[in-house]
Amino acid sequence: MRVGIVCPYSYDVPGGVQFHVRDLAEALMARGHEVGVLIAADEDTEIPPYMTSAGSSIPLRFNGSVARLSFGPLVATKVRRWLDQGDFDILHLHEPVTPSLSLLALWNATGPTVATFHTSMVRSRALQMVSPLVRPALEKIDARIAVSEDARRTLIDHLGGDAVVIPNGVYVEPFRVAQPDARFTGTPQAPTIAFLGRLDEPRKGLPVLVGAVREVVTRIPGARFLVAGRGDAGRDAAIAELGDFARHVEFLGGISDDDKAALLTSADVYVAPQTGGESFGIVLVEAMSAGTCVVASDLGAFRRVLDEGEAGVLFRTGDSADLARTLLEILADDERRAAVAARGEHAVRRYDWSVVTDEVLTVYEMVLAASNATVRVDEAQGGRGRLFDVEGSGS
């Protein structure tokens, strides 16, 4: 099967959607399928060989974050050329209503099309405004996927229609077998609490974590907070807010995938203090895969990933005092912390790419089967259409 995947966001500063697209492409290729990915990227940005760059992008603030999008007549020409050259059996668009590559590809799509929706938000004026403009294009989509119930609800409320829920995938094994690193490993007197995320995006929750440091360190003087992620402005603001307590927080900057796995498997607790705009929570699944106890804000998406608090510990969103209380309780209870981590390790199996890829391929096969049936009807009526050989496309 020839699969074309389109990512609306730039690979220059990759995030959850970009990693999802990359991992899905590689999981499909591991099954023997041919995959091409269209994505925005600057000339000096290194991208995998199966990716094609549509050029540079423009940063725009959206949903509490900065999205780097690519649009315009020149980009549209590149999208059409990529589609023509790819001759894909199926086209898989991510965030197709975002004014970027996926929307351009949707406008030009002529064959079987699947779309994945990642965004979660309670109310969006932008989506409400764009909805009448994109609804006709959305009718070209043969199957819709949402990465969570929250993303599905956003789709239903703002754009209409429904979707099957297939979660984000994680390669569980690399995190499961990662070895502890002495740099990140704590002791009973000096436990380590880890955080990963963009430091200059308030919704990622660094200010909430910073607000809990004083209380935790007052009770556990040796506690170390390991903060990984880019964003100089957020780091500097955190240091200023911490004052003398800044010495208990180690800012690691951007880290490699190997270091991320080592950090997660070494820490006593992983904290996810996000305040909103999360449709899933991939880093929670990564921490659970590493066998680390997760403490997370009680956002709907996080509650569902953590089985309503069975596979992780929840605190009130945005409440630094409640986060501090929760951390102190879980750090003081080794038996409970181990039990929560064990339940997390069991729960993540459903998010492994081996499972998720099967579910995505099932959607592809249903779409191709429906397209095949439609083409046969058209031909029987004297029309013309492309015949998709479902049986011959499974490798």
Rank of each mutant, 00 (worst) to 15 (best):
R219N: 07
I39P: 04
P207M: 06
I220F: 00
G72V: 00
A40M: 06
G86Y: 00
D322Y: 04
G222T: 02
V170G: 10
E335M: 08
G300A: 05
R349F: 09
R125S: 15
V130I: 10
D232Y: 11
A347V: 04
I39C: 15
E173C: 05
T275M: 11
L327C: 08
T292C: 14
A324M: 03
S53A: 12
F302K: 05
A341L: 09
S65T: 09
L155H: 12
H346K: 14
S279P: 04
T265Q: 14
R343Y: 01
S289C: 03
P202S: 10
A262M: 04
R235K: 14
G276A: 08
V130E: 06
P188W: 08
D322T: 00
S131Q: 02
R214H: 11
R384G: 14
A262S: 07
L155W: 15
E26N: 09
A67P: 00
S371G: 14
S53C: 03
D268S: 11
L196N: 09
L331I: 03
S395D: 05
S354Q: 07
A233K: 13
D150W: 05
T317E: 06
A240K: 12
Y270G: 14
E201C: 02
H118E: 05
D236Y: 01
G309E: 03
V285K: 12
A341C: 06
L199G: 06
V285S: 14
V21M: 09
E43V: 05
I193H: 10
D268T: 03
L387R: 08
V66I: 14
R304K: 14
F302C: 09
I220N: 01
R349S: 15
D89Q: 10
S266R: 10
T110H: 15
N108C: 14
G382R: 01
L323S: 11
V271L: 12
A380F: 04
A67V: 02
S320P: 00
S53H: 02
E43H: 06
A163M: 08
G15P: 02
H346Q: 15
S393A: 13
G291C: 01
A341K: 04
M51R: 13
L314A: 09
Y364P: 00
A143F: 09
S120R: 11
L328P: 00
S120K: 13
L323W: 05
L60S: 08
